[in-house]
């Protein structure tokens, strides 16, 4: 997408420069050719290809109900903190650090207490809004154990920039121990 954009930008600006500096080089091009060529032939196939790719990729990323149900972690946002809970482990206490199992997809179930927030771990994927009255789900996967930074991406008032959190991905063996043992 990036190189495509660069190429298109260069093409348009080059044509503009040529038309200003050497109009004779382009003077033989008919008006219809400009409109059909530049306005239709050039962008339409590119846009269609992009749309199809994006649609397929988007389908792939969806949290669809499938054969293997991933773990569901609940993320609840309020001004200005996140609280993560793990309903699949009976006694797990809620945490302020998000603990993820590495190497497998998880569904984060995002809700909000007061105003609109947005759940985003830039290195793991897209974001999803936390909206009062709504429940949203995003499917993420941390490939390797480690620490990832998460933030609130929707403006939510005075403490907006302080509403970051830490996401720790654990090797599957350690995972249950971690959330079970965390106060």
């Amino acid at each position: 997408m990036f190189w495509g954009a660069i190429a298109l930008f260069t093409l348009v600006i080059a044509l503009l420069a040529l038309s200003l500096l050497r109009p004779s080089a382009l003077a033989s091009i008919k008006p219809r050719t400009w409109i059909v060529g530049g306005g239709l032939v050039l962008p339409v196939p590119i846009l269609i290809a992009l749309l199809i790719t994006a649609l397929l990729l988007g389908e792939h990323l969806l949290p669809k109900p499938g054969s293997a149900e991933p773990l569901r972690i609940e993320a609840h946002a309020s001004q200005w903190q996140w609280r993560f809970s793990y309903p699949f482990i009976p006694d797990a206490a809620p945490t302020t650090i998000l603990h993820l199992p590495a190497g497998e997809p998880v569904d984060i179930v995002v809700t909000a207490e007061d105003v609109i927030h947005s759940f985003w771990i830039p290195r793991l994927g897209g974001k999803i809004d936390a909206i009062p009255g709504h429940t949203n789900i995003i499917r993420l996967q941390a490939d390797k154990p480690g620490v990832y930074r998460g933030i609130c991406a929707e403006y939510c008032g005075e403490g907006h920039e302080t509403m970051g959190f830490e996401a720790r991905a654990h090797a599957p063996a350690d995972y249950a121990v971690t959330i079970g043992g965390q106060p």
Binding site: L47, I48, L51, L56, L62, P63, K64, P65
Partner: peptide, 13 residues
């Protein structure tokens, strides 16, 4: 073009 997604995209998720 705008209606093409009806062929493929998930309607409710």
């Amino acid at each position: 073009i705008t209606f093409a997604p009806v062929l493929l995209a998930s309607a409710c998720t």
